[in-house]
Simulated assay, not measured.
Amino acid sequence: MWAIAQMELKKNIHDKGIWFWTFILPILFIIVFVAVFSGQEGVEYAETVTQIIPGYTVMFTFFIMISILITFIKDRERGMVARIASTPISVSSYFLGKWIPFMIIVLLQIAVLFLFGVLVYDLPLGDPTALIVMSLFQAFLATSWGLAMAVLVKTENMGIALTQIIALGGALLGGLWMPIEIMPDIMQTICKFIPQYWGLEGYKEIILHDGGVLDIWQPLAILLVGGAIGVLIAITGYQRYLRLAKS
């Protein structure tokens, strides 16, 4: 397991694409949208910063799904999966070895984006323990959905399209692009069924109200359930993934 994790982490470090999706593009989005919305009349600067930075952080954590599914599809097409399946390595060890590096990358992504917010926009962070726990659960959700997607899709293009639907559609419906309060009533009801909404709500509770771990129990519970569903889909879909693997 640890050999797989080490190899995967080294490979991702040298992947320029993952650096773009994970760090460069989110920072560009934050800069542009803070500039746009902070210039609007009647919108407070602090309100803009505390909405946009956590919101886009949550949104871009889901783009890790692209890197996860590309990795799994390449392993499947190059015969790596078939070779691993013939060894004593268990399914759980294989998944953990592939999953741990992506968890590290997402946690690093969250840390970098929030640090950028602190240094450039004076973003308050609130309780550090609650922030770390919230980030762990958010990373677990995004990466587990990536694992589920990786074993289900047949092609990279299909996976990338579905990832963008999940990331961008969830951001729109979950209120990551604009405050929930200005959305229509029906949208305010729908958003409560979107995991991205609860990710943002957890961060806002910590940042705006100095909430602790106990104050964000509901977002944490929802992210945990969503992540567990992703893991369950990934494990149950592994046999199908093996059948598609080239020997």
Rank of each mutant, 00 (worst) to 15 (best):
I84C: 09
I84N: 11
Q109A: 01
F116M: 01
I166R: 02
V120Y: 11
A111C: 09
I100D: 02
I104L: 14
Y94C: 01
M80K: 10
M158W: 13
A130I: 04
L69S: 08
M103L: 14
I68R: 00
F72R: 03
F114G: 02
I89L: 13
T87C: 01
M103I: 15
P101Q: 13
A82W: 03
I100E: 10
W145L: 15
I68H: 05
I166P: 06
M65S: 00
L125A: 01
G159E: 12
L141I: 02
I105D: 04
L125R: 10
Q138V: 11
S92G: 03
W99C: 03
G117K: 08
L113M: 12
L96Y: 06
L123P: 12
A161T: 07
I105N: 10
M134T: 02
A139V: 03
P88Y: 00
F95Q: 11
P88I: 00
I66L: 01
K154Q: 12
I64L: 12
I64D: 06
R83H: 06
F116S: 06
F62I: 03
D122A: 10
A150L: 04
P124V: 00
I166E: 13
S67Q: 08
L152G: 04
T163I: 13
A111G: 05
S86R: 04
F140M: 10
D127C: 01
Q164V: 11
S92R: 13
A130G: 11
